[in-house]
Nucleic acid binder design. Structure first.
Lengths: 281, 281
DNA sequence: GACTGAAGGCGCGATCGCCAGACCTTTGAG
DNA sequence: CTCAAAGGTCTGGCGATCGCGCCTTCAGTC
């Protein structure tokens, strides 16, 4: 995260730890007096919101983002094995990129075993029958796994609250069925994991906000690689599913506070297990 | 959001509204049978997570992202009027971009009145004394303002929960003082707004997660442009601050559920007012 | 058995954003 | 007066992306 050892920070207020508020008023007095005020180099402040402002600009390329999006969708099971993607000429216009760029991504995903293509009429690009459902987590994610967990926590808890506000009985019925299904899959971890993801994604869909679904799938993609590193004894999976039930019950009775609490407890379980296997904070 | 009128969707499972789970198991039966199965073009499904997968790749340029980051920081008051930015040569290395690219952004922000530069020794790039604290919301944001609110709700509620978990008394004391300060600014809306933002950002910082601070400032930037469109009578501001107190109290006693409820109620207030001024959903 | 249309598999040249410098100009501090 | 620190300017080059045309494969269809 580039701690930025540079001592030269100057922006950020006039000294006190408290964020500047009193000096915010537009049309402040002393119009010219400020111009060449000493404004000495400040002592290094404790990590603050300015670190976020001056953090590196990431600027992912279209190619990278495409690989990530499709790869994540496959890993999460949103694109199930055997599913056929839209034709290249159509997909590239959906994604708003050139076909050559899209092809780079498809080729990369083909080489990594996620996709395979069939030529000729009736052909297309298909999700592999048994795509690699997990990839080694990037060193960056590993190093900041706590922040990844935090982000997941925030998004999922928020979604739980929003879902509790807008609970649609029919949709919750479907999610309840998923919970029952999960109970029958406690000894088949891969399937169980996929169903678990579908449950959480379903809750996000229940909010009716596409941006939230996107945000959730992104963090789920990161978490998946981490979760794959740890063991999942059936007892843990069972108790996790008990939490699912409580969560859905809270959502169904529109109890936002309880939904938040249940979701937080649910995710904290995973976090604790991760903490046991990923040494340094 | 390009609803994608194309009827050709094929990916996404084998029919039922329920997300595919049963067919997810790797090494499923019928290994070759699937190869050229009919797999007819599916009927258009209800909006689902696949819309997120195939949504356009945005791929912001480094220039755009830089303008947005610095501009938002200024609008939110994270970079207060008169503050001096790091020198260009230093800043561009912090941001991980070329100086020429950074300059484009600085020039753009100079032309829009957010920044002004002084040459010579002791010079630098400074936040304008009275920068434009609001810009007209982009038509895209206006069209999807509900989703923007949803995202804000999710992030802020999640942050409230996480902050409640990790509440640090000293930091909460500082936030309490901010609340008191806000009470004295009920008739000075711009200052009050800035202090409000600092309060929310401070809560995000209390979580200790840089990514969350970033996420919050981003959505705050979008919300600011919307909030600027509506009136803010002192009574509303006062009651809003009462909610602040309740929120901080819940955080202080580590009551996650209450924190989530208070934050949700707090944001819902703004949302209702917005709904009254922004016609169509 | 030939034909056709829908799909993936190429290969170009043009463009654009971005980078990496070197160099100039201004101006306060010492 | 000198100098160092800052912003202002220019140039060349590179890589990602675009847009487009053409080829190859191959299940249906006639």
């Amino acid at each position: 995260m580039t701690p930025g050892p540079s001592p030269g920070h100057t922006a950020g207020g006039d000294g006190a730890a408290r964020p500047v508020v009193s000096e915010l008023t537009p049309s402040s007095p002393e119009p010219a007096a400020r111009r060449r005020a000493p404004r000495p180099t400040l002592p290094p402040e404790p990590a603050s919101s300015l670190d976020a402002v001056f953090a590196p600009v990431r600027s992912q390329t279209a190619f990278e983002e495409t690989v990530e999006r499709l790869g994540t969708a496959i890993k999460l099971g949103l694109l199930p094995p055997g599913a056929r993607l839209p034709a290249e000429r159509e997909l590239c216009s959906m994604l708003g990129i050139a076909r050559s760029t899209l092809r780079q991504a498809l080729i990369a995903l083909g080489q990594s075993g996620h996709l395979h293509a069939l030529r000729g009429r009736g052909g297309g690009t298909f999700v592999a029958d048994s795509p690699p459902l997990t990839s080694p987590p990037s060193p960056d994610v590993l190093a900041h796994w706590r922040e990844v967990c935090d982000e997941r926590m925030v998004i999922e808890v928020g979604i739980a609250v929003l879902a509790a506000e807008r609970a649609q009985p029919e949709l919750l019925d479907a999610l309840d069925r998923l919970v029952v299904e999960i109970d029958g899959l406690l000894d088949d971890y891969p399937s169980q994991r996929q169903a678990d993801i579908h449950l959480h994604v379903g809750l996000a869909e229940a909010t009716g906000s596409a941006r939230l679904v996107t945000a959730l799938t992104e963090t789920q993609g990161l978490m998946s690689d981490l979760i794959a590193l740890i063991p999942h004894p059936p007892e843990v999976l069972a108790s996790s599913n008990v939490q699912h039930r409580r969560l859905l019950a809270a959502v169904r009775r529109h109890d936002e506070a309880a939904a938040a609490r249940e979701m937080a407890a649910h995710l904290r379980g995973t976090e604790h297990i991760l903490a046991g296997f990923l040494p340094r904070t």
